[in-house]
Design a binder for these strands. Structure first.
Lengths: 354, 354
DNA sequence: TTGAAAGCGCTACCAC
DNA sequence: GTGGTAGCGCTTTCAA
């Protein structure tokens, strides 16, 4: 019932606890025969070192914390996959916390993590987050933090992001080139720098094409609110002149599809839609969705790698370690140019499997 | 830089370490004024108890481990959400491990967890798992384990599953009622009881409808192998008489769609498809996919609840604690009966947004 | 090459 | 009510 510990091993082997410990840690000052004997017994008794004891002693937990707004979202689950991958390679464990887009929760979690429970933290901030005192708290304790995707713009800390400005620009440009002139932009929390950058790209593209910026066309989802699902529908009803939608997050692209269905608007003929998304099924939608796809898995891996540089070297890293990865524009039928309508029936038939 | 500890607080307050500890733990034998003084300073200095020290001392880690085959899958990410929810309510932390469908990894993780690092474990087994010695290991250590979704059939331990037999039956029945007579069943690892039960439901429904069971129509995906994506296509090519597909996992339903597109087969006219899936976009696919949807979030919550019963009461639980939740059959266009073809153009136009 | 012993930060037992 | 102290299991000086 009670797990075997060093004492038990030492007794059985007539060795001291210290020797057993060193043998198991493969220290150079222990003879090979002793090492072998110790290892053999440890294996036989299924010895596993007590993690809390060694963490306490070494002041290293071999654990990182990951704090994300939500997990039922392809972007974050892929990022976790990448993070777990790197952590495992470094023999690290991964604690997961969901902020549910709630700054209070994020704060509470970060406070907990400040107590030496983890050697480092990966954070993608909640959309409500405005204050970042909690980051300083970890910094004071010497616990490195790397932000990914949803980051605080100003802070001097390493961030792993994507080219959100360029992506916003390209998405909007793509719609404009496809003939759209009244382009709605659906986004989340203005406070997020990620949203701001996508939006700036949107504005820049409009300007480039000499399309006036219309504030009414930019709608921001209140974080985690249920009404957000109906947001596109409300907008499309109020502004029937909209002929393009640029959704800054996957969920808004999906509710735009639903809104079009409900309102009898044809995609892409009446409204063209492009959205940030990591949906594997984007190409199987009706019609297939044109996406800006972030390299979510790579972001996770990259963020974890940057963190481990800090963790291993045991020092705080700065904004200088930041990385920016490129998102990919994947053109599909939802933004097919109306001038290509002669080809449309074929494409549609294919999409339908007809 | 160094985190504040009890010693520091005790010094500043001219109290003993013991008193400070008890004050912070709100013990009855400490006077209110003292508690207030201690709390005030602790707050001011951002004191957070050292988790490893108290875990070591109390022999309680306030942490559970979650071991799943993969995370980039709606079922598991929703389950995690449910688990995290319950854990948080119990003031517990959640460690995440991905087995990547690899038994060796699963084993290695379970060994690690046997060392008192966690107070309990939630496990959804890798498809390759055949041996379960690692479960006994945790049992010996008194660490409760609850299996969810992908479970070991025989073991006397609590399991949280869905009505897989009934779901398999209903899915197949649904296809049969829609007119299918040559129904392929795409599944994963035969060794999983979950697969076996779905398959038994499939067989039972066939028998009920006096449709002979054809072994060739049952194809099993080799876990995590890249060829699995092309599996439906190979099958549909070899057996052009197939008029229905029952996919036991989401990914196989998706590759069936792709296969149909590639082969020019019309869904649902030529082939009807039903699949287990937690895809939020099922209704937006071309055509909308009929699904068996498992209550993933609830499974996570339920599994965690069962685990916490054991963790709190500090005893192992048995199979008697098992729960079975119901999956839901959501009928959509991918299995629309061919006799309804008069309505089809409308449905399709809607699906297309035309 | 091995052993003895201190101590990581905390809790719990026993005094007073 | 409060303080002293032992000890959770481990690592790591320092001695031998």
């Amino acid at each position: 019932m009670k797990p075997v510990n060093l004492k038990k091993l030492a007794q059985e082997l007539n060795l001291s606890i210290a020797t057993v410990s060193r043998a198991l840690n493969d220290r150079y000052d222990i003879s090979q025969p002793t090492k072998d004997r110790v290892r053999a017994l440890a294996n036989k008794l299924n010895y596993e070192p007590n993690h809390h004891a060694s963490s306490l002693r070494r002041n290293k937990s071999k654990t990182i914390g990951v704090v994300i707004p939500e997990v039922d979202n392809h972007f974050f689950s892929l990022a976790i996959k990448g993070i777990e991958e790197v952590a495992r390679r470094n023999n690290y464990h991964v604690l997961i916390y969901l902020s549910h887009e709630d700054y209070q929760r994020e704060l509470a979690v970060m406070r907990l993590l400040a107590s030496g429970r983890v050697d480092g933290v990966l954070l993608s901030v909640a959309s409500e987050s405005q204050d970042f005192a909690h980051l300083d708290l970890l910094r004071e304790r010497g616990i490195p933090v790397v932000l990914f995707d949803r980051v605080y713009a100003g802070k001097d800390m390493p961030k792993v992001t994507t080219d959100d400005y360029e992506s916003g620009y390209r998405a909007t440009q793509h719609l404009l080139e496809a003939g759209c002139r009244v382009i709605a932009h659906l986004t989340i929390a203005h406070t997020l720098s990620i949203s701001q950058r996508r939006m700036q790209g949107y504005q820049a593209a409009l300007q480039q094409f000499r399309v006036p910026y219309d504030e009414e066309l930019v709608v921001c989802e209140a974080a985690g609110k249920p009404q957000s699902a109906s947001l596109p529908q409300t907008l499309l009803t109020q502004r029937p002149d909209i002929d393009g939608i640029f959704a800054a997050v996957e969920s808004l692209a999906m509710s735009s599809y639903e809104a079009c269905h409900n309102l009898g608007l044809r995609i892409p003929k009446d409204v063209k839609i492009i959205g940030f998304s990591n949906l594997k099924t984007a190409s199987l939608l009706a019609p297939p969705l044109t996406t800006i796809t972030q390299p979510a898995y790579e972001i996770g891996k990259e963020a974890a790698s940057v963190l481990f540089q800090a963790v291993v070297k045991n020092r705080l890293v700065s904004a200088a370690q930041s990385k920016e990865l490129k998102s990919e524009l994947i053109v599909r039928a939802s933004t097919a140019s109306t001038t290509l309508s002669s080809k449309e029936p074929v494409a549609l038939a294919l999409a339908l499997g007809r």
